[in-house]
């Protein structure tokens, strides 16, 4: 901090501000920063405003990032309805396994009056399985997994049996399948008609 040269010899003596001009602060053995950083001392107004500014900008930046990330996960997707009707019990012969190819669902009419439904999506890697009537098995064409008529795993790389779906009967007797196959377990849900 340079001191101005005194205008004449008379002003060479130190004045009350010890030679400081204008906004200059007294600089003792501790600098301003050291004083502010002493424990128990509140930050200066400038410091505080600076921190508020940084905080506000950070919130904006992080918030912007989160909003952009959220944009990437669609909130509305077009997909076929999860619950759908599949006709009446009379449409399905006794002791039959019917594949609904659009919805990828096996509808099984077992013993007279008993229905159950399984997802035809292979629990291994998502290929569509096929019911082999002569072999009495459901088989996956992709990697060779085999399942029994109740969907239990017989062989192959699949980690589990077929996903079991819930079936209901509507007021007019129509059959309804709930095709929410994700995270469904191996327990067969039987609908008695």
């Amino acid at each position: 901090m340079r001191r101005k040269k005194p205008k004449n010899e008379e002003e060479g003596r130190k004045d009350r501000n010890s030679g400081l001009e204008g906004n200059e602060q007294h600089r003792g053995p501790l600098s301003d920063e050291d004083i502010q950083n002493l424990p128990g001392i509140d930050p200066s107004r400038r410091d505080f405003l600076y921190r508020v500014g940084v905080g506000a900008l950070s919130i904006t930046a992080i918030g912007g990032g989160l909003i952009t990330a959220d944009f990437l996960w669609p909130d509305v997707v077009k997909q076929p309805p999860i619950r759908f009707t599949i006709g009446t019990p009379a449409d399905y012969p006794p002791n039959s396994v019917t594949l609904l190819p659009e919805q990828k669902v096996f509808v099984v009419r077992a013993v007279e009056g008993y229905f159950y439904a399984m997802s035809a999506i292979c629990p291994h890697l998502g290929c569509i399985t096929k019911w082999w009537k002569d072999l009495g098995e459901v088989r996956c064409p992709c990697h060779g997994s085999r399942f029994g008529v109740k969907g239990e795993k017989i062989a192959g790389p699949a980690p589990r049996g077929l996903y079991q779906l819930q079936m209901d009967q509507g007021r007019r007797g129509e059959l309804i399948v709930d095709n929410d196959w994700r995270d469904k377990d191996d327990t067969v849900h039987v609908l008695k008609v």
Partner: peptide, 29 residues
């Protein structure tokens, strides 16, 4: 792509979210 994204879905914790991000839906579309 069905098989590939299903493999992604097997990742622990974040798998399903990553699969949804890649597929843009619950299944390939």
């Amino acid at each position: 792509v069905t098989v590939g994204t299903n493999i992604v879905g097997y990742t622990p914790v974040v798998g399903r979210d990553l699969q949804y991000l890649l597929l843009g839906a619950n299944e390939i579309s």
